[in-house]
Amino acid sequence: MTDEQIKEYFEKLNNNIKEYGYHVTNILESDSPGFCYSTGIYQTYKIPEIFISSLPKGLCSEIIENYVEAFKDGKEISLNEKLNFLTDRFPVYLIDVPITNLKEYVLSSIKIYGDKEFKYLQVIYPDIEGIFPNEAGYDYDQDIMGALKK
């Protein structure tokens, strides 16, 4: 990216945080699974940011939007439990992810937050057979950045 493109990107990111409370960055990879992540949720709503590996852009946006709506008013976030309301396509888990595990992925958040505290959760989803990574027979290319309890 050129300096001008970087400037424009961060202007858009900051405008989205002001207008919607957060921004979603989608990274498409040619030789490995893509990913998306939020920036601004922790600052705006005091709930962890979201990281999602290997799902399409529209589905990532849907899950992040539903997450914000579900938890922005202080509802307790259930970690390592199947949740059926972040998308109607399949249940998901939310797991805690140390920022150190994401430092090469969530560059926009690292730039925006600087030295301020922020947290991330990862959305974990099943393969096409409905099997999760912590279950026998799981078969999908999803990078898991935290610990999914069995």
Score class of each variant (00 low, 15 high):
residue 65 E to L: 09
residue 106 V to Q: 06
residue 89 R to K: 13
residue 67 Y to V: 07
residue 66 N to M: 07
residue 142 Q to V: 06
residue 79 L to A: 09
residue 94 L to R: 01
residue 3 D to Y: 11
residue 18 K to R: 11
residue 41 I to S: 01
residue 2 T to N: 08
residue 51 F to P: 00
residue 10 F to N: 10
residue 38 S to T: 04
residue 81 E to A: 09
residue 77 I to D: 13
residue 124 I to V: 14
residue 27 I to K: 10
residue 10 F to I: 06
residue 5 Q to L: 14
residue 52 I to V: 15
residue 148 L to Q: 01
residue 128 I to E: 14
residue 132 F to K: 02
residue 21 G to F: 03
residue 134 N to P: 06
residue 72 K to L: 10
residue 146 G to A: 12
residue 87 T to N: 04
residue 113 Y to D: 12
residue 58 G to I: 02
residue 49 E to N: 08
residue 106 V to N: 04
residue 37 Y to W: 03
residue 98 P to I: 13
residue 62 E to D: 11
residue 26 N to L: 07
residue 150 K to V: 07
residue 137 G to F: 07
residue 133 P to A: 06
residue 81 E to H: 11
residue 119 K to V: 01
residue 37 Y to H: 08
residue 99 I to T: 10
residue 128 I to W: 10
residue 56 P to H: 02
residue 39 T to S: 10
residue 80 N to S: 07
residue 88 D to S: 14
residue 5 Q to W: 07
residue 80 N to Q: 08
residue 10 F to H: 11
residue 95 I to A: 03
residue 21 G to Q: 06
residue 63 I to M: 14
residue 63 I to R: 08
residue 4 E to D: 14
residue 19 E to K: 15
residue 118 F to Q: 04
residue 114 G to I: 10
residue 122 Q to P: 00
residue 120 Y to V: 04
residue 88 D to K: 14
residue 32 S to M: 11
residue 14 N to K: 09
residue 137 G to R: 11
residue 115 D to E: 15
residue 9 Y to R: 14
residue 11 E to C: 00
residue 111 K to D: 11
residue 129 E to M: 12
residue 31 D to A: 06
residue 24 V to N: 13
residue 104 E to G: 11
residue 149 K to V: 00
residue 55 L to D: 01
residue 31 D to Y: 09
residue 34 G to T: 04
residue 70 A to Y: 06
residue 63 I to P: 07
residue 70 A to R: 12
residue 41 I to H: 03
residue 26 N to Y: 10
residue 89 R to F: 08
residue 112 I to R: 13
residue 141 D to E: 13
residue 145 M to F: 03
